[in-house]
């Protein structure tokens, strides 16, 4: 698969109206900045700092990474310094094409400092491809620090082809902050995926909604761990739904802790194979079983 194709999959064919930084095979490939958004390489070249000025509105900022050869292992630290009263979309993600017998691994640590009253939409997509026996490994880590009345919507998707992943998300919310995370993960073959969420609702009237929808096929194995702490008058809702196909395994280990009498925390989880009545409905529309399964799974992960 060509570099451009990989980039298009990772970014879902997005066009960046604002600044961008494209990293290919461990090096800066292209960068654009503007008056509101500056991107600076860290001095030790371990990653970048993205500075978004107060009041920046309407920009779509791209920070994709692709690896197109085997035997690359990198850890990248990207820090997003988002000013007050911003409203921007950030598109990140990683695509690995590995046709070799060596492992390719990208560990991206993204830290967000979301300023007061700012609104951020963060989209992150992960994709692996390649016929080689080399593993495609991604370990994304997201650290979110939310100031008063800030709002962040994080949509993270593992499309397919990632052999091993440990996905960590840590968030701290101040007064009135509102965080929504939607995670969608597909595994197949012998792939393994672990998702770990650690959310601290420290602020009064802070809110968090965490939705995990995963599909595990074949002999793959997924684990979901969430630890949500309500440390003030706050609300959190955690929803974990999983579809298992063939011999796959999925575990869900929720933990919700109310450290304040006005904390309201909800968790719900459903794990199981595709519901028989869903299949019957789609068969009755003329789909065969494979088509029906695909529609259900694609819809679930959309």
């Amino acid at each position: 698969m060509k570099q451009d194709e990989l980039l298009n999959i990772v970014t879902d064919n997005a066009t960046f109206s604002g600044a961008y930084n494209i990293r290919v095979n461990g090096k800066l490939f292209d960068r654009q900045t503007n008056e509101q958004v500056n991107i600076v390489s860290k001095k030790d070249n371990s990653g970048i700092d993205i500075y978004i000025k107060d009041g920046t509105v309407g920009q779509t900022i791209g920070i994709p990474v692709v690896l197109t050869s085997g035997d690359i292992t990198e850890t990248v630290l990207n820090d997003f310094h988002i000013g007050k009263n911003c409203d921007v979309t950030i598109i990140a993600g990683c695509g690995i094409e590995n046709c070799s017998s060596c492992t390719s691994q990208h560990d991206g640590i993204h830290t967000f400092y979301v300023g007061e009253n700012s609104k951020i939409k963060y989209i992150e997509r992960h994709y692996g491809h390649g016929e080689g026996s080399g593993q495609k490994v991604m370990n994304p880590e997201t650290v979110i620090n939310m100031e008063k009345n800030s709002k962040m919507e994080m949509i993270t998707t593992q499309i397919e082809g990632v052999d091993s992943t440990i996905r960590k998300t840590m968030a701290t919310l101040k007064d009135g902050a509102n965080l929504t995370i939607t995670e969608k993960v597909l595994t197949s073959g012998d792939q393994k995926a672990t998702s770990i969420f650690d959310v601290n609702l420290n602020g009064k009237n802070s809110k968090a909604k965490l939705v995990s929808r995963v599909v595990a096929k074949d002999n793959s194995h997924q684990d979901f761990f969430s630890d949500v702490k309500g440390n003030n008058d706050c609300y959190a809702h955690i929803e974990c739904d999983a579809i298992i196909v063939n011999n796959a395994k999925v575990g869900s280990t929720p933990k919700i802790v109310a450290n304040h009498p006005d904390a309201s925390l909800v968790h719900e989880a459903t794990i199981g194979k595709i519901a028989g009545e869903q299949l019957l409905k789609l068969l009755s529309l003329g789909l065969d079983e494979k088509e029906a399964e695909d529609v259900i799974i694609q819809g679930f992960l959309k």
């Binding site: 739904d241 009755s284 259900i296």
Partner: peptide
């Protein structure tokens, strides 16, 4: 599926929910 393709349709008594 074969019957559906022969233009036979069925409305279920209990509607089915689909996430997504």
């Amino acid at each position: 599926t074969e019957r559906a393709k022969m233009s036979i349709a069925f409305a279920f008594q209990q509607p089915v929910k689909f996430k997504g």
